[in-house]
Computed example of a mutant assay.
Amino acid sequence: MTFTDPPRQVAWRHKDLREGFEVVFIEPRWTVEGATAAIEDGDGFAVQYAIDLSPEWVTRSARVASFGRELHLLADGDGAWHIDGGPAPHLDGIFDVDLESSAFTNAFPVHRLALAVGESAEAPAAWVRFSSLTVERLEQRYTRLPDDAAGRARFDYWSPDLQCELVYDACGLVLDYPGIATRAA
């Protein structure tokens, strides 16, 4: 599966689980900057992030900040990670960062894996919780489904806490993340 180049700016409306917006700016040299501001369980939050990707959509580094707190992740591209300068062996073998506050980061494994219809792959991620800026290993699996009637790519997404169908646009960016977000622009 081949996706077209992403636009320079995209946005999602977060709904159901949280109410708010995420806006992402994509630089031509594989740097992504974004922010999410939302309300979840009656509490407001804001998260800013900058992620550097390889041309193969493998995470190289990520900086995540929220209200004076900041977290730095560095990946070597071969599955080894550092968090704030120290080794993070619990993330060994991971190629993607996944931000709890972001719909955008679900594009990384879809691009990187380039699954054909019917193929499935494990895609564990370095999952950053927005409330604590802690990083956990999140087991995930993506299974490529046939395109929908409009020709949009569909994937069955599985993690220990969630299973749903994700629909992507021609750029490989999620359009509908059930119960979490829909593409706004």
Results as ranks from 00 to 15, higher is better:
Trp30Phe: 15
Leu113His: 08
Ile39Ala: 14
Phe45Met: 01
Ala65Tyr: 00
Pro109Glu: 01
Asp147Trp: 05
Ala38Asp: 13
Val23Thr: 15
Leu115Trp: 10
Asp16Asn: 05
Trp30Thr: 00
Ala80Lys: 09
Asp92Leu: 01
Ile39Gly: 05
Ala50Met: 09
Glu100Phe: 01
Ala62Arg: 04
Gly42Asp: 10
Asp147Thr: 07
Asp43Val: 10
Leu17His: 02
Arg29Ser: 13
Glu136Ile: 04
Arg112Cys: 06
Asp52Ile: 09
Pro55Ile: 03
Ser102Pro: 12
Ser131Thr: 12
His82Asn: 10
Ala126His: 10
Pro146Gly: 01
Pro89Ile: 00
Glu33Phe: 08
Phe130His: 15
Glu33Gln: 15
His90Gln: 11
Ala149Val: 10
Asp96Pro: 09
Ser66Cys: 02
Asp148Gly: 08
His111Met: 05
Thr134Lys: 13
Lys15Ala: 09
Glu122Arg: 15
Ala150Phe: 05
Val117Glu: 15
Leu91His: 04
Leu138Ser: 04
Gly42His: 14
Asp41Pro: 00
Trp57Lys: 06
Glu139Asn: 08
Ser131Asp: 15
His72Ser: 11
Arg112Ile: 04
Leu145Tyr: 09
Gly93Thr: 09
Val135Ile: 05
Ile83Arg: 14
Val64His: 02
Ser120Met: 03
Phe25Ala: 13
Glu19Gly: 02
Leu71Tyr: 06
Ala121Lys: 11
Val24Gln: 12
Leu115Lys: 09
Phe21Thr: 12
Ile39Tyr: 01
Phe95Tyr: 13
Glu100Asp: 14
His14Met: 05
Arg18Phe: 02
Leu71His: 10
Leu113Ala: 03
Val23Tyr: 01
Asp92Glu: 14
Ala116Gln: 12
Val135Met: 07
Ile39Thr: 15
Phe104Pro: 05
